[in-house]
Amino acid sequence: MATPPRSLRSWERVDPEEFSRRVAGKLGDAAASVDVRNGTIHVTLPAGDVVGAARVLKEDPELDCAYFNFLSAVDWEAEGFEVLVALHSLTYGNTVIAHVRLPAESPSMASLTALYGGANWHERECAEMFGIDFDGHPNLVKLYLPEDFEGYPLRRSFKLASRRYKAWPGAKDEEEAAAGGPLR
């Protein structure tokens, strides 16, 4: 094993506010905004250079976000997609979540697989669930769904067939009962 990553050698907990200042300082213009919500640092990145910013987060010794937590997306319908990349800095005890806005039509982003090996499966899942293309991914094939599955299930526009035909019988509120089933 080569030099073990910083995370293995010593841990020094840093307050989230202080860590967010460090992140903002290191990323500079690369980040559109950095703020702390509920103890996690949220960074908004433009879609152009996600890999560069992620590289700073991972390789800078004062940030050391070497732990790849997850990558997923949120479908905001007309406003497009929001890709989330969650990283932990075990050395400094903080979580950084990067938000990347993508357009609703043909959303595409650079792949993080060169930087984090763990991004491989997460990006495959995101691609098949939302239809987001990850440029540079070695093997962007379906992960969960059968080969012949059509559609992108986690998009809001994908409606569950069973609910179209049969509303959930246990409607909880008067509004739902009056509307003849769940409101969403």
């Binding site: 994908f158 069973s162 179209r164």
Partner: peptide, 13 residues
Amino acid sequence: IPQIMGTGRSGGI
């Protein structure tokens, strides 16, 4: 033996 009812592909209409 019952016939297979539907191929199981439910969703994505």
